[in-house]
């Protein structure tokens, strides 16, 4: 927003040779925004429309077409399709790993920021988590595969859940850290004086206040798990495959089932979409107003 008014000022100055009116500036600004929106939304729109086309329509590049649900029917009802199972797997893995991530990240954030750790503990843990977060997951996948194999965790839900929990913990820790630090110190102290021990403080004081943070972090973690590809690719086989693997399966060596792929992709958007709609009302900041001052 600020940059918009910054550019607006010099443009509107009358001495400029190509002076523009406020109206013209607004038009240009909207054109730029619309082109960005186009760049983002076009592929999305293209995939969704492809899901309703026949393979022929799609390959002929027809813009006008008669929508049909063949892609969806095949993806959902065809005996050879694993998509529903993939979907279920993703749900289970996403839900459980998100739950674990939230529990661990919240406890860790509270401990790090509200119990009196020496500075080096805080900084080395946070530093390590950043470094871990920056390592591309694919570099870990191979090592995890052989580790998990040797303890029998390959191709199991537990293994993938563990991997996803580990992968997404640093991000969640950072996010929850921000929300936990927003809880005024005095509230924790007041609770201590009121007789609360650490578990009470967490449950009765910190958690209710960071609920919007939990919702935001939870949604992001779930979406990350839902989208995660390289690690599940290595760790899972048919029984435990998740949605991204399922979508990938439609690209075979000889044929690519474009409409099924598009239909599966369209379906895969739904959970994140619903989650965002549902959780929006939780992600309301300012719950702490009135606590201090």
């Amino acid at each position: 927003m600020t940059h918009a008014s910054d550019t607006h000022q010099p443009l509107a100055t009358p001495q400029r040779r190509f002076a523009l009116t406020d109206g013209q500036v607004a038009v240009i600004r909207h054109l730029i925004l619309m082109s960005f929106a186009l760049v983002v939304l076009f592929p999305f729109f293209w995939i969704v429309s492809a899901a309703f086309k026949t393979q022929i329509d799609l390959l002929m590049g027809r813009i006008l077409f008669e929508p049909n649900l063949d892609g969806f029917t095949k993806v959902i009802f065809d005996k050879t399709s694993d998509f529903l199972r993939n979907f279920g797997n993703s749900m289970v893995i996403g839900a459980i790993s998100t739950f674990l991530v939230l529990v661990i990240a919240t406890l860790a954030a509270f401990s790090l920021y509200r119990l009196q750790w020496p500075g080096w503990v805080l900084h080395s843990l946070l530093g390590w988590s950043v470094i871990f977060h920056m390592v591309p997951p694919i570099t870990l996948a191979g090592a995890w595969y052989s580790m998990f194999r040797s303890v029998g965790l390959d191709n199991t839900y537990s293994g993938i859940i563990l991997a996803h929990t580990t992968l997404h913990l640093p991000m969640a820790l950072w996010m929850m850290g921000v929300f936990v630090r927003d809880v005024p110190k005095e509230l924790v102290e007041a609770a201590q004086i009121d007789g609360a021990k650490v578990p009470h403080i967490l449950w009765h004081v910190v958690l209710p206040i960071v609920r919007p943070g939990l919702a935001a972090t939870g949604i992001l973690t779930f979406i990350f798990s839902w989208n995660e590809f390289p690690v599940v690719l290595v760790l899972s086989q048919r029984q435990t495959a998740t949605v991204p693997l399922g979508i990938g399966k439609y690209a075979q060596e000889n044929t690519i089932a474009f409409t099924e792929m598009a239909a599966a992709s369209t379906l895969s958007i739904l959970p994140a979409f619903l989650l965002l709609l549902f959780a929006q009302r939780f992600i309301v900041r300012g719950l702490t107003s009135g606590a201090v001052k």
Binding site: P184, L187, L287, S289
Partner: peptide, 20 residues
């Protein structure tokens, strides 16, 4: 002795009321 067992109550400058 931890604060809860000292038999004290404290009123903070910022009040520190539980917002929820």
């Amino acid at each position: 002795v931890p604060p809860r067992d000292r038999g004290i109550s404290m009123v903070f400058q910022s009040y520190a009321l539980y917002p929820h």
